[in-house]
């Protein structure tokens, strides 16, 4: 009998692979719309990973705010400007020869330290941590984090006004 693979493990591996492939696609695609769509793929798989980590409210917000609003805005602007594919860049030897290897080294060091310093992290099981529903998140948001919440709302207001002022066409 074939042992049934653990769904937590299988789900993580599938989603992580999908997220990494989409991430590669974000930085390698020539056209901005393709990059944006790949980024939506990353966000979708992250939303499911949030669900597995017990953050259901956050998963929904990730889809509504990130994939449904911010990325739609990106796609809208890309389509509005319709600037075509990126022109092939002049070879940037500095970026390729120094940047990418040092980035890989950084990644290796980080992973090494994560595994070394946190060897006994708890294993993720779907449904083991259920505090991420709307009620607990809302309660904490409106008690302990009330001030940051209000400050953020002010920030959003400023951003709205700023965006309107910037994007408004000058009336000649």
């Amino acid at each position: 009998m074939i042992p049934m693979p653990n769904l937590d493990v299988l789900g993580f591996l599938v989603l992580a692979t999908f997220a990494v492939l989409c991430g590669l696609s974000v930085i390698l695609q020539k056209h901005a719309v393709a990059s944006a769509l790949s980024l939506v793929g990353v966000m979708g798989s992250l939303a499911v990973l949030y669900l597995m980590l017990g953050a259901e409210f956050l998963a929904a917000v990730q889809m509504i705010v990130y994939a449904g609003a911010i990325m739609v805005l990106f796609v809208f602007v890309i389509m509005l400007l319709n600037s075509g594919s990126e022109r092939p860049a002049k070879a940037r030897y500095f970026a390729y020869l120094v940047g990418i290897p040092s980035l890989l080294a950084f990644l290796g060091v980080i992973s090494f330290f994560i595994l070394k310093e946190l060897p006994n992290t708890s294993s993720v099981q779907f449904g083991a941590f259920t505090q991420g529903g709307p009620a607990p998140v809302g309660r904490l948001l409106f008690t302990q984090y009330l001030l940051p919440f209000e400050v953020t709302s002010l920030l959003v207001l400023i951003a709205i006004i700023g965006a309107m002022v910037l994007a408004k066409k000058e009336i000649d």
């Binding site: 769509l37 409210f57 929904a60 917000v61 509504i64 994939a67 809208f76 389509m79 709307p134």
Partner: peptide
């Protein structure tokens, strides 16, 4: 979180058309 799921799906639905 049924209501949120419906909102999420309806907000992602624009991609098909765009």
């Amino acid at each position: 979180i049924g209501v949120l799921l419906i909102l999420a799906i309806s907000s992602v639905g624009v991609y098909g058309i765009a």
